[in-house]
Nucleic acid binder design. Structure first.
Lengths: 238, 238, 238, 238
DNA sequence: GAATAACCGAGACGGTACGTCAGGTCTTGCT
DNA sequence: AGCAAGACCTGACGTACCGTCTCGGTTATTC
């Protein structure tokens, strides 16, 4: 998947040694060996990603075209393909570099409770718009390309799951959690729920849903008892 | 989205209010107007949908071709396009008519416990092959077609969620469940987890995963305590 | 090429035993055997031919469609194909039946000289418009279908050549002709010249051309000396 | 009709005033504007035209397919359509570039008599294979495309007529010809006869026919007396 | 007069070519 | 050697037409 030369944009997709590593901004190694010839114009990467983001938002994955991205970026198609080997991977990186990437565990203050931590996470306002939509766009490709699936998992899914996993680890350290839980599995639940709802597009993924996801699913699941509600009135009437 | 004439294959796809409605065989109104000329060969619809389903499962949405569907159905492309105006709409109906294999609540014996019921559900061997793969294939289109999303939700997702929801209702009647849970939300968890794992294609959706999903996620979440294990050794060592 | 039943429109393409037979109006034998069942509606033939003629004039051979002919005739495609086995053959008969067919030798008065007879022939105003254009339309098919070529030759070319051949025979009887000529070959010259000019469409086939064809080609060729000009001024200045 | 850009393949196909102009190699103007980007691969033009010529001769216009042409040329359909906007226009240029085989007047030795010159012309073995077949193939299109007709006339018909016209001029200089003949018209006779016979496909265009055309039509017509036969026995018995 | 058989208009059917368009690669001339 | 431009091949798309087949209904001949 990576370019033959090591100069690719996501040559080492992130590979966090520790599971809670930051989402790893795309590394721009200035080239392992001093290459001859004209060096790459690093500014083109950003231009292309910006163009890709715009085209993606405007047309969606299926109707976005590489020629359109290149034209909007004022680049040639070869310049795009020199950096990303396929449309799917360009989209992955486009999304991975959206906003400031997935939230980092360090950014979530320790509120003293899992429920509080999750609320703090929700407050981070990481710009996830488009992440799951893009994943939906390339979903069909994932079936047939394990490499692409690996990259998508690495850059889109894993960082977001990892944050939740980290909060669960914090809670475990606090002794909040019920014993014998499969925290790795549990940590995947919120991402899966959000992704499915976004892909189906039938119900909004709004603050109420996210809170419900935390308070009605994750906290009860992890702690073994329904989340203590500070304000009973924020419990949605059903 | 539907066929131009009112003879659409999924004339009323979205409105079954009761969640356990049958998969709704495609209604074949005997023609609203007395048509002249050679009538449509109704058997071609089924042949084409079968072919489309097979091609979809085999190649995914992007790589499935209309010519391939027509050839597999022994039909001409015109016969396909006479019924569905585009590839996306053919897939809509293909999805809409898939799901006969969705398990029905009545098929799940009441074992006396949620955990047992879930195990029984897993044993039903419902014909889910290709359902989630098909969903992945059209995921990109869901963004731009509310109709497609509605049909996919109705035919693929909702019936499967509904069965779990029914088992949760049974458990609630037994008094197994912790109070104050959002059962509608909880019931979505397994489908979301399965769908995501299938789409990513990185880890298998095997019996062990499904059991873990039931015993390590759904039962603890619903009952407030980890599932009692009959055989401790089937608890995966972690 | 003919229909299996003898009821076809051009079942016995004409087969003039004597070479100067009339162009043979399409024979409508009332059926060799007394057939049971509903007889063909003979009026449909004329309607279809009229429609075909109109469509041919309007769109040309390539863009004329059988469905369009049938629709204009108020007939079904099957009714057309029951009478003519292909588009090409329908066009052949359409042309063969245009106007009152090719001129007949009997219609050309004996003026006492070949030159005069040819002038009389030109004055007959047979409606040949479209004959050679139609032949051009099916020219490509002729390459690959000897049967079609036979029909076209029989119904379109031969009758017109035969008239000239008849006039040459008259002239021979008068003793006008030079000895030792291949009259069958010579009789083909005018048709070939007209056909080529019409097909190429670059120069008009007008009265001047036809007169020049007779006076500057056929008469000199057949009689061995340039045609005596009654009016020298009608000799085109070149 | 020409390519949208001025880089057309037959930019000036019609204007050679002198009738014996060379077949006019397709002019390749080095591009009117300094184009950026990858330049057209000029070798593809020739490959495609060769393939088109072969397909045209093999299948005729109607059965020749653009996909077949592209495949035979080892090109993509887009490459063909980038150069010619339609099948008809590709055939126009194919015809325009065919005719290298047309004999030139200079190639016909002066034998001292019209009859001898015509025999020498027949012996030239010019590469006419496919020329008249191609003309037949596109005959239907000629009706609707003056450009196509112009090109076909210019490239296929006119050069061949011109050679005969040149031989007639030689004969006139020798004093062989009867006075007052329309040589331009007479020169068209052989081409018309050959074309018609080839299109009808009913009788072969063989050496005997060509000789008969010269000796029984053209020579008597031009000289006013039947061709003197060296060997009386080669006069066909009739 | 009823049965029969072929007709009729309408249009769906399988097939095939058309002309368009996108993805991903390669080739120019320039920097 | 990178870069912008764009030509290249591949292959799917959706449309149109041909010639065949099938429907429900009609109409003359035959028993």
């Amino acid at each position: 998947m990576a370019n033959p030369d090591g100069n690719t944009a996501h040559a080492a997709p992130v590979e966090p040694p520790e599971p809670f590593a930051p989402p790893a901004a795309r590394d721009r190694r200035p080239a392992p060996t001093a290459r001859v010839g004209r060096p790459r114009d690093q500014t083109r990467d950003g231009d292309i990603l910006d163009a890709a983001r715009a085209e993606l938002a405007e047309h969606g994955y299926a109707r976005m075209t590489m020629a359109g991205v290149a034209a909007r970026a004022g680049a040639g198609k070869a310049t795009v393909y020199r950096r990303w080997p396929s449309k799917a991977e360009l989209v992955i990186d486009t999304i991975a570099c959206t906003g400031h990437g997935a939230p980092r565990l360090d950014d979530v203050p320790d509120t003293g409770s899992l429920r509080g931590d999750l609320a703090a996470l929700r407050g981070l306002k990481h710009k996830d718009e488009g992440v799951w939509e893009a994943l939906a766009g390339i979903a069909a490709e994932l079936q047939h390309s394990p490499q692409l699936a690996a990259v998508a998992d690495e850059r889109l899914v894993r960082p977001r799951v990892a944050v939740v996993r980290g909060l669960l680890a914090r809670a475990a350290a606090r002794g909040e959690l019920a014993p014998g839980l499969d925290l790795d599995l549990i940590a995947q639940v919120p991402a899966a729920m959000v992704a499915c709802r976004l892909v189906m597009g039938r119900e909004p993924v709004d603050a109420a849903f996210l809170r419900s996801l935390a308070d009605d699913v994750l906290v009860p699941l992890a702690t073994g008892c329904p989340a203590a509600r500070e304000r009973p009135e924020d419990r949605p009437a059903r």
